[in-house]
Lab assay of single mutants.
Amino acid sequence: MAAGGDHGSPDSYRSPLASRYASPEMCFVFSDRYKFRTWRQLWLWLAEAEQTLGLPITDEQIQEMKSNLENIDFKMAAEEEKRLRHDVMAHVHTFGHCCPKAAGIIHLGATSCYVGDNTDLIILRNALDLLLPKLARVISRLADFAKERASLPTLGFTHFQPAQLTTVGKRCCLWIQDLCMDLQNLKRVRDDLRFRGVKGTTGTQASFLQLFEGDDHKVEQLDKMVTEKAGFKRAFIITGQTYTRKVDIEVLSVLASLGASVHKICTDIRLLANLKEMEEPFEKQQIGSSAMPYKRNPMRSERCCSLARHLMTLVMDPLQTASVQWFERTLDDSANRRICLAEAFLTADTILNTLQNISEGLVVYPKVIERRIRQELPFMATENIIMAMVKAGGSRQDCHEKIRVLSQQAASVVKQEGGDNDLIERIQVDAYFSPIHSQLDHLLDPSSFTGRASQQVQRFLEEEVYPLLKPYESVMKVKAELCL
């Protein structure tokens, strides 16, 4: 049975990233139509530049190519590739079939990587351009969430054990800070992308030097003109047959890092959902379990974690691919890159769409948070109580021993009897502590235990987050809708 299948058929496997999760716009960027249309555009740009620099290419040939950029006979191309065992030459023939007058000058002087690699770089750039505003929107939604809850005390956790208090907004800023680093890295790697350009079979530009009869300047002009037509500021000066596969490492490393950030955020949300302090959106008709109707599973956060793990592992592909590119190139890269580049971007696209949807509907339960604080705060307040007693004339050592005994009794009630923490009640009825009984409410005010959390939130948002989001103001209103 021949390899390949009808990918629109229910009898043929289709990647869930495309069929179930990723956005239509990201799927289109990695589609065959987008790819092969870009090949034709690159052939047109090459012909236009070659004509401008004096090669015998007519206006009629150029116009014929322009008129057929979208006229792609995919069936013919597939048949040609089956016959020739070469995808680029299959599309040269297919393009030439609908451009008979231009057929002889299509791909003039070029090698397969002229269309293959340059198209990949265009796709990487455009895919990054799709991700950047999506990530900015996630940051914006979380920034709104953090600002609104900047002063809401909550129990902090280290080692997932109760620690000092923080605020809900401050905790959210930990998430935002990681995503801001990801946004900066995505922008950097996007701006650092260079075009492969017009380089020939081993990167020496020998074929173009021959076409222009040894004119170095025209060869350099050709490279520059096509690079500018493709919208790049610069091209690699040095290439082998391909652009260095280190570029793929750079791009997928940034995406993998984004995956790590999203995994951490969504894990926190899942843990908070278990504590009943916070939940992701839950639709009115949504079913959490087929057997347990009360369940409210954090399905979206779980999906993000599941896909983020996949995204983090994909960076190993370009690392290994770059390491086995012998001399000017081997074909070890080809099949692998067809999979890992598309999957990385479709996965990143999915987790950003999902995280935006989550961040637009996060639900906080202040009463649950308050109750958990009441359970733990008495123990945390013991040092403040000791200091207040010393100020009232008591002995630190005597007070410490009193607190120690009462704390152990209260802990026994919590752990052995399943009761509430009654340390404060014990202190309130103990005559030894009568000098500070009137101060206990103040000493137990949760806001006095959150330090500068709310001020940190305000400063972080104003100095770091809002300036970073400013270039994306025009796209901030787009909502994230999930079908599944």
Rank of each mutant, 00 (worst) to 15 (best):
R452F: 12
R338T: 05
L193D: 08
H86M: 08
F212C: 04
E60G: 08
L319V: 09
T313M: 11
Q210I: 07
F449C: 05
F30D: 09
A146S: 05
G104N: 04
V475N: 14
E48F: 05
K402M: 02
P446Q: 00
S434I: 15
S19V: 13
G109W: 08
D59K: 13
A322S: 07
P56H: 12
K75G: 00
D216S: 02
A381E: 11
R396G: 09
N357E: 02
D11I: 13
R194D: 08
A273T: 02
D333R: 00
R329H: 12
Q456K: 07
F232T: 02
R270F: 01
L444A: 11
T204I: 06
E81P: 08
T382G: 06
H400A: 10
V219W: 07
Y13L: 10
R452P: 14
R452V: 06
S257M: 05
S140W: 00
L255A: 15
I427G: 02
A256V: 14
P298F: 15
L179C: 11
K35M: 01
L183Q: 02
L108G: 09
S257R: 12
I403S: 04
C483V: 11
T239V: 12
L252K: 04
A388M: 03
A431G: 15
V115S: 04
A18D: 15
A348M: 11
N384I: 08
A49N: 11
L484K: 04
L165A: 04
R196N: 08
T354W: 02
E80K: 01
P467W: 00
A78H: 06
D441H: 00
K479H: 09
T94P: 13
D420G: 13
F212A: 04
H217G: 03
L362G: 02
I122L: 03
V198H: 01
G203S: 03
D445C: 03
D32T: 09
K479T: 14
G240D: 02
S31E: 11
H93K: 09
L211P: 03
L319T: 00
V405R: 02
S289G: 03
Q320W: 07
Q285H: 00
R171Y: 00
S207G: 06
G394T: 02
T158W: 03
T202P: 04
I265P: 06
S151N: 14
L121P: 05
G214M: 13
S9Q: 05
S448E: 04
A480D: 03
L211K: 02
